[in-house]
Design a protein around this nucleic acid. Structure first.
Lengths: 223, 223
DNA sequence: GAGAAAAGACTGTGATCACAGTGGCTGGTT
DNA sequence: AACCAGCCACTGTGATCACAGTCTTTTCTC
C-alpha cells in the first residue's frame, strides 16, 4: 500500500498538483489519499531524501522553492545524464518504440496547440521517459526521474501559466530522425538542444524564489 | 533520531560493513543500533528508494548483488557526474582545500602501503567527496553519494580482499596538480582516469553475482 | 485599546500492538 | 528411511496512542 501512496505522490509532484512553497502535512495528505498517516510518513520521508520535499527546521514540510542557480544545476545534470541515456537508447531502440515516441509527441503538440499546457507538459515528460526507458538502464532511470521530480512543481508553475509561450517540437522531431538514422551523437545533441530550449523558457520566468521576500501569504496545507 | 539512524546506516554501507547478498531485518538492525524498529523502518525505506537496499518479492530485504553490467553503468554515470563536479570544483576551490585533499591522499596512500585496504578505501572515498563538496552543488552531491552508496558493499568486498593489488595514486596527484593550475579540463580528465583505473580493478574481480548459481549459503541477517 | 501571557490546536515522531504472509523446523505417517 | 503435513517462529506493515515541540489565537491585565 505504501508503494501505492509513494507513486501516487510522485505522480502528483510531476503533474503540477503541488506548488513550490506549498506546505504539506502528514495528516492532511493521509486524509486526502484516504489512507492512514502511516504509509504517508514513509513515502514522504523518501521524497525528502530525493529532494522533492524539504524539511524546514520548524519540522514543517514544504515543496522547495526554486532558485535560478539550482535550476541551472538541475538542467546541467539533466543535459549530461539524458544525453547518455539518449545515446544508449539510440543503440537499442526498436522501430516500434520510435513509432510510440512519435505518437506521444503528436499528442503533446496537439495539447499545446489547444492551449492545454498542463497536458502538453505531461506528454512531453512521457516522451522523454519513454525514450530513456528504452535504454533499459536501471541506474540512469531513477536518477533522471529524481531530477524531474525536483523540478516538477516549478516547471508546471512556470510553464503552465506562460500563455504566450512559443514552443515548437523541432528538437523532438530531430531526435526521432536521429534515432531512425541510428546516429547516437546526433540524437544526443538533439536532446541537449531540447533541454537548452527548456532552460531558456524557464530561466526568464518570474516564478523563482524571491531572494529575501519571504512571501507572507504562505500556502496552507491542502494535502 | 531517525536522521541519525539513516546516516549511521549509510556510513555502514559505505564502510563495507554490509556484504552483497546479505539479508537484513528491521528488528535485527534496530536491536543492533539500540533503537526501536520504528526509525529503522523509515531509514531502510529511504535506502531502498536510493537503490542501496533491495526488496525481494518475499518481502525480505537484502543488500543487492552486483553484476558486471550494473557496475559498468554505475561507473559510467560516475565518470560523467564526477567529471562535472570536478570541473566545477576546480573553478572555486581554494588553496587550503587543495592542501586538505593532499593530506587525505597521503593518509589513503599510507594506509594502502601498510596493507589496511579498508582504511585506504575509506580515505579514497573521503578524497573524492572532499573534492566534490568544494564544488558546492546541492544537486550533484546527493546523486554522487547515491552512486557510491550503491557500489559501496561491492567495492569493499572486491577491493579489500585483493591482496596483491597494485594501486598508485598517480591520478590523484595529477588531479591536485590540475587544481593548482586551475585547469578544469585536465582535472576532469584526471578524475576520469582515476575512475577508469578503479573500473579496471573492479571488473576483473570474481565477486560478481553468479549468473544462475543462487548461492545457497545465503547470509543470515546480522543487522 | 494595546501588549503580553497562557491556553489550545495543530505539527512530526517514537513506541507498541495486531495481523497476514512466508520460511523452516518438527513430528507423524506411509 | 523418505516424504508430507502441520505448527511455530519471524518477517514487514498498518493502525493507534502518547509526547514534545511550534504556532496561532484568545483572553486577561495594565
Amino acid at each position: 500500500m505504501e508503494e501505492q501512496v509513494y507513486s501516487e505522490l510522485r505522480d502528483r509532484f510531476m503533474s503540477g498538483v503541488f506548488l513550490p512553497g506549498q506546505v504539506l502535512t502528514l495528516r492532511n495528505l493521509a486524509a486526502n489519499l484516504g489512507v492512514s498517516p502511516m504509509p504517508v510518513r514513509q513515502a514522504v520521508r523518501c521524497l525528502i531524501v530525493e529532494g522533492a520535499l524539504e524539511m524546514l527546521p520548524n519540522r514543517t514540510m514544504q515543496v522547495p522553492r526554486m532558485t535560478r542557480d539550482r535550476l541551472a544545476e538541475l538542467l546541467g545534470v539533466r543535459r549530461a545524464l539524458e544525453g547518455i541515456a539518449t545515446e544508449a537508447a539510440c543503440r537499442v531502440i526498436t522501430a516500434r518504440q520510435i513509432g510510440a515516441l512519435e505518437k506521444i509527441h503528436a499528442m503533446s503538440r496537439k495539447a499545446f496547440e489547444s492551449g492545454d499546457m498542463r497536458r502538453s507538459l505531461v506528454m512531453n515528460q512521457r516522451f522523454h521517459f519513454t525514450l530513456y526507458e528504452s535504454a533499459q538502464s536501471t541506474v540512469l532511470m531513477p536518477i533522471i526521474q529524481g531530477l524531474w521530480l525536483q523540478a516538477g512543481p516549478f516547471m508546471h508553475l512556470a510553464l503552465s501559466s506562460t500563455a504566450g509561450m512559443h514552443w515548437d517540437g523541432t528538437h523532438h522531431l530531430e531526435l526521432v530522425q536521429a534515432l531512425r538514422d541510428g546516429d547516437p551523437a546526433e540524437a544526443r545533441q538533439a536532446i541537449e538542444r531540447d533541454i537548452n530550449k527548456t532552460a531558456e523558457a524557464l530561466l526568464v520566468t518570474p516564478h523563482f524564489a524571491a531572494g529575501r521576500a519571504e512571501t507572507p501569504e504562505r500556502l496552507r496545507a491542502r494535502g
